[in-house]
Design a protein around this nucleic acid. Sequence first.
DNA 1: ACTGTGTAGGCAAACGTTTGTCTTACGTCA
DNA 2: TGACGTAAGACAAACGTTTGCCTACACAGT
Lengths: 369, 369
Amino acid sequence: MAASNSNEPRLAEVVPKQAVTKPKRKSLDGERPASLKMLADYLGLCPATVSVVLNNVPGRSIPHETRERVRDAARKFNYHPSLLARSLRKKRTFTVGVLVPELNDGYHTMVMSGIGDHLMREGYFYFSAHHRHKPDMIEEYPRLLMGRGAEGLICIDTNLTHELSVPVVAVAGHKKIPGVTNVLLDHRRAADLIVRHLAELGHKHIAFIKGQPFSADSRTRWDCITAAAKDIGIAINHELTVQLERDISSPELGYPVVQTLLQSHKHFTAIVAFNDMSAIGAIRALRDVNLRVPEDVSVIGFDDIQAAAYHNPRLTTIRQPLHDMGETAARILLQRLQGFKDYPQEFAAPPELITRETTGPANPRGRRR
Amino acid sequence: MAASNSNEPRLAEVVPKQAVTKPKRKSLDGERPASLKMLADYLGLCPATVSVVLNNVPGRSIPHETRERVRDAARKFNYHPSLLARSLRKKRTFTVGVLVPELNDGYHTMVMSGIGDHLMREGYFYFSAHHRHKPDMIEEYPRLLMGRGAEGLICIDTNLTHELSVPVVAVAGHKKIPGVTNVLLDHRRAADLIVRHLAELGHKHIAFIKGQPFSADSRTRWDCITAAAKDIGIAINHELTVQLERDISSPELGYPVVQTLLQSHKHFTAIVAFNDMSAIGAIRALRDVNLRVPEDVSVIGFDDIQAAAYHNPRLTTIRQPLHDMGETAARILLQRLQGFKDYPQEFAAPPELITRETTGPANPRGRRR
DNA sequence: ACTGTGTAGGCAAACGTTTGTCTTACGTCA
DNA sequence: TGACGTAAGACAAACGTTTGCCTACACAGT
C-alpha cells in the first residue's frame, strides 16, 4: 500500500505530548503502530470520524476534501487498523480453524492447499492444528481454536464425536452430526470403478487392504467395495482381506500386511489397496518375493498422490479431487458463516479412475511361489 | 516455558455434557458465552476481582472462600476468557505466522510439522499462509499476518527482501537480514558428502541439476558443491550443468532438464540433483532412453523425502533433518519473543548421506547412446 | 419569524479483558 | 483513644475499534 513515503513519518512531531516531553519512554513514540486516535489527534477530528471515512461507511456525510485529508494521513502514518480491536467490537474475526491429523501427509496437505486457496482469496485467515489421531486432542483443539476466535472449523479426516457451537465442515467425514457438513468422495462410484476395472481385466481372486479404524474413510470405503463387488458378481474372500493398523504415512504402511498375505499362500491376482501409500508398500512386498506387477499381480491404489504417477511402475489408482474438495469445504463453510441457511448437508465429489501401469489382465496362474 | 497462564480454566471438562442434562438454560447465560461481567454480576463482585481470582494474580488478597465461589461460578457457566479481549489488553497474542511457498510439498510440510509440534507444545497457535513464490504475496502476507496479531514469523524457503518489525526465523534462508535468524542445513558438509561419495565410486564426469532461482537454497547449495568439487579435485563441466525452472513439486520438475542434458550427447556417469523430486524425474528420463540406474548412471538426490526410500530403485540422497529444523526454528522464535537477546544469528543442521540403490561404481563407458 | 432539511462531525457507549490505585471496614497496638 | 496496618474488593482507565445518536450550524421555503 503506502510504499511511497521515503522519509519516515515522525508521529512524534505532531503529537508532542509524548515524545517531546518524555524522551525516555522510547516505546511510545514512532515505533508504536498508528491508531485511530493518533490519526484523529493529528487531523483535529475524532476517532469515530476517521473510522467512518476509512471504512467508507455508507450514509455518512463527510465532504470529499476531509476524506482525502484522512486518507492521506492514514497513508502517511502507515495506518493499519488493529484487527484484534475490530474483531472484539464487531464480533467477527474472519478466521477459521483447520484441524488435521498430520501436517506431513500428501492427502491432508493437498486438501489444505485447496482450503488455503479459497480462504485467502476471500480474505480469511486460518489457524491450523494437528492431532495425530489422539482422541484427547480431537476433543480439545476445537475448543482452543474457537477460543482463539475461529468462527468455524474445517476438519480433515477427523472423527468428530459431537456437535460443536460453530459451523463445521468435515472433509472425509462420514458421521452425521448436527451442524457438520460432510465433504467426501462419492465412494459408491469409486468402488464401482475399482471393481469393474479389475473385473474387466478378468480378475476374480482379489485381495483387499482395508484402512485403519481411525481413518475416517475406512469404514465407508470398505462397505462400498463389498457392495460393488456384490453388484458385479465378484466374491470377496475374507481370507484375502487384510487390515492396516499403523499410523504412519509412508509405504511401510502396506509392506507388512502384504507380507502376511503372501505367507498365507492363498491364490489372488490383484490387490485393492486402501490408499496409494499402502499400494506402493504392497508392490515392494510383491517384488521382494519376485512377483511382477502387473504381470503376476495387479495393484490398484487410491487417492492419486503425486508419487503415484512417478512410481515405477506408474500406479493405477482412483483420483480424489482433493484440492477441489478443500476448496469446496472452505466455500461451504464461508457460506454458512455468511448466514446461508440451506447449505448442503453433504457434498460428494466425483472420483476418477486413473489407469496406469500397475493393473493388467489377470494371470491365470495367479501369483507363483 | 509454557505460555504464561498455566491456570487457564479447564472448565468444560468439569461441566457435565450439557446437551443431555440441561434442556433449559439457566437464566443468566442466554445466548452469548459467559463474560467476566456476567460472572461478576452473578457473584455480586466486580469483573476485576473475578479476573484476579481466575488468573491467580499474585499479591492480591482474596479469601479462599471467595476464590472458590468464583471458580465454581466460572465452571458453572462454562466461562472461557475471550482471548481477543485479553490480547488487546495485554498486547500479547501467543500467535505466530508461518509463511510457506506451497502447502502441498513434502519439504515444506515436514518442516511445518516440526514447527507445529513445538508451537502447540508451548501453547502458541499459528496462522499459515502460502505464497507460491509470488513476490507480491511475499511482500504482502507478512504485513497481513502481523496485522492479525502474529508476534513473530517463520518463513520457510522464502526469499525475504527486507527487515520486518517482528522477530523472524527463516528456514532455508540465506540472506543476512537484521532481525532474521536463519535455520539452514550445513550445506558445506552436505556438498562434501555428495562429492566425496561419488568420487569414491570413481565418478569423474558428473552432471548437476541446479535449483530454481526462486528457491532459497539454490545459490548456496551450488556454491558449496563447486567448492567441495574443487577441494576433492573433481572438475565441473558447465556443459553438464542444467537448471530447474518450473515451479512445481512433482518429478516432472526434473524430467525435461535431463532430456535436454541427454540430447547434448555429453559424457557423464552421475547426476547430482537439486532435490529428490527432480532426481526421480531424472531417473525416469534416463530409463526412458534405456539407461540403467545405477549401472549406467548414478543419481543422487537431496532432502530424503518419504518417496525417496520407496522409490524404485531406492534413492540415494542427503537427508535434511527437516522436522528438527522446524522445531528449532520455532524454539528460536519463541526464545526471541520471550526477550532472549543473544539468540544465534544462524543455526546449521547436520546433513546425513543416505546410501541406497541409485548410486554405484562409475561405468567406464558412461552413458551409452 | 418559524419550520424543515441537510451537512459535518462530535459524543459516548459498547466489545471483554487487565492492572494500578483507592476505599472501606476491621482489628491491633501503644 | 488515636494511629496504623491490612484484608477485601471496588473503581476506573486503559487496549483500538465501531456505531447509534446527538448537536450545531447553514440554508431554503412558507
